[in-house]
Amino acid sequence: MATDMTLLIGAKGGAGGETVDDSTLEEINVERMLVGFLRALISEQFGEQSGRYESEIGGHA
């Protein structure tokens, strides 16, 4: 490990389990994604992201 930057990687590596994505472009709604991308860029430009993601997180709902 790097001497001036002791890293946190350890025995429990991967406990979170990252996404392995095998979806193809055909399966992705690219147009919808691009529109979302642009709208999010604009709202971030205006600093409208306070309380961000909260609206998208609804627990079990």
Partner: peptide, 8 residues
Amino acid sequence: ARAWYCGW
């Protein structure tokens, strides 16, 4: 967080 995700 360390206990959850890295174990150190």
